[in-house]
Design a protein around this nucleic acid. Structure first.
Lengths: 141, 141
DNA sequence: ACATACCGTTGGTCGCACCAACGACACAAG
DNA sequence: CTTGTGTCGTTGGTGCGACCAACGGTATGT
């Protein structure tokens, strides 16, 4: 299966990167079938979890740089999925909130994401998946 | 540790991506301290494993697109680490080979990489590392 | 009142994966 | 020997994600 040279094939970082490539491709493909990218889902998911939020809070919740939040919210707003209004209590801030259609979309994308998770972990048994995810959690930054 | 919203924090693909981000950063930082990038090491490692090779073979061994092989070999050649000569037996091809200083550099980078692997897996016990790598191997494309 | 810190925006960089098209060349079928 | 067919290396591009710098506008603490 692997044409890759032994020096690379043996490196944990190589295996990790390849596994992530595969996962990423599955995820991106799944989202792009619906016309969205990872950043879109991350912002919508953050809003779905925490309700309306400033872009700064959104960035922390979605793991995005504020600059990327700005362009992503631009995009979502132009599709009518979120509303961006000035915060009356702090005029530096915008309040970003899901619109009804944004909320419906999020529910659909949640299903898409769940299916993608399953596809990624398909080679493992349920018990292995649990162990794998537990080990993965230990390797977080 | 994680400010990330629950909908994301629970996704295996998210954990995998974050773990890979961390690993990637450790690796890139380690290599860049010596003035190199991942592509450089991959090509040198392929040459170290298989000896002189055409760029096409090099691409397969290093997991690179031929276009990326071309620019990477350009770079390595300009630093005197590889030699690129026309293949007398097939004039479409180049033969790329390590120079003596390329071989010495590869030995140094091997050590750098080994240390980076250790840093990445530091949070796990030796037994856990073995299990983790085994599971990772099952998730390859 | 003024310094400090934060907010959102714009306009970049970098690493990596990948794709398209081209001329040069090899090779096998006719 | 000519004529496909296909490979090789090169150039020039795309997309995505992570990230950085600098700016004007706004709050806030001293």
């Amino acid at each position: 299966m692997e044409d890759v040279t032994p020096r690379l094939a043996v490196l944990p970082t190589w295996l990790l990167g390849r596994a992530d490539d595969r996962a990423h491709r599955i995820l991106v493909d799944a989202l792009s079938e619906h016309g969205f990218r990872g950043y879109h889902y991350r912002v919508l998911a953050t809003l779905g979890d925490g309700g309306p939020a400033s872009q700064s809070v959104l960035g922390r919740g979605a793991g995005l740089d504020r600059s990327d939040v700005a362009t992503t919210v631009d995009d979502l707003q132009s599709r009518g999925l979120v509303a961006r209004t000035p915060d009356p209590g702090d005029r530096r801030r915008n309040v970003v909130a899901l619109t009804p259609s944004g909320r419906r979309l999020l529910a659909r994308l949640d299903a898409v994401l769940a299916q993608a998770q399953d596809a990624v972990l398909a080679p493992l048994t349920p018990a292995e998946r649990t162990r794998f995810v537990a080990l993965l959690a230990r390797l977080q930054p």
